[in-house]
Amino acid sequence: MSIEVRNISKNFGAFRALNDINLDIHSGELVALLGPSGCGKTSLLRIIAGLETPDTGSIQFHGEDVSGHDVRDRNVGFVFQHYALFRHMTVFDNVAFGLRMKPKKQRPSEEEIAHKVHELLNMVQLDWLADRYPEQLSGGQRQRIALARALAVQPKILLLDEPFGALDAKVRKELRRWLARLHEEINLTSVFVTHDQEEAMEVADRIVVMNKGVIEQIGSPGEVYEQPASDFVYHFLGDSNRLHLGDDGHILFRPHEISLSRLTQAEHLAAQVRDIRPLGAITRVTLKVEGQDELIEAEVVNDHASLAGLIRGETLYFKPRPSFAANGH
């Protein structure tokens, strides 16, 4: 089921949370709403779900205007950052909740519900926790239960609000890979909100980069990274260096877009080594250039010739090789 967002604006008092947002999400897509906190991404997600009402504009599901539909009638699955599991219910009852709340005529029998719940718990690989209470589970387990609960009512759309935001780094990584795989299996139109560019890059089919209530760019992870539409997108989607060229001009480049050398070379600038950090496959070298306070970070492969025997305080020669020509003034 596709989602069409049309001219959505939303103000909270004097604060403009969303400013004339237009967005098309295709059927079966996994889309990330990416941006810093306060950019309006969560408001947009809540408006799609029906938890907030926009000031202007409309939301359509597969061409049907659902703006006037109550939350209950939109049939969306929603996963909260802090899980929002029912704390007084067991895992089983949590997952069964949506089925049990159905009007009597549509409600499945208790056996059918039990069958369905165990099926979902197996899918999230947590069937053995059925009789536990939420407070006895780890964060990662809670979020998987929350997902199973949201999927129990067979939603047409799945919305996730910072689903991994409250988890620690390792669990977050595992869970987002698992979510990407799950999405491939069930192929449900899904939108998730995140402020973590790595998460968006790794999981999403398309990324919607938002800032201050407007959409800066919509594109595949490759597009937004390699062809950023603005300086904001460039900075937000990864580490960046700024090298001043005098007369207020500067060039932007990523830490890996650099040539390093121990000897002077044509077009290379001298810089002092401030720090050397081996980070697995790559090593990060922090450089101080004469005439600018901002440090330059260079990332090169571990066995790069310039690194052999390198110590802090030595002089290196570097040349930026930016792939993106956003040379500002």
Binding site: V71, A84, F97
Partner: peptide, 19 residues
Amino acid sequence: QEEEAARLLGANGWQMFWH
């Protein structure tokens, strides 16, 4: 949030309050 979750799962006002 728990109330919102209940509504999203199809509970009406009374069901949300009671359950």
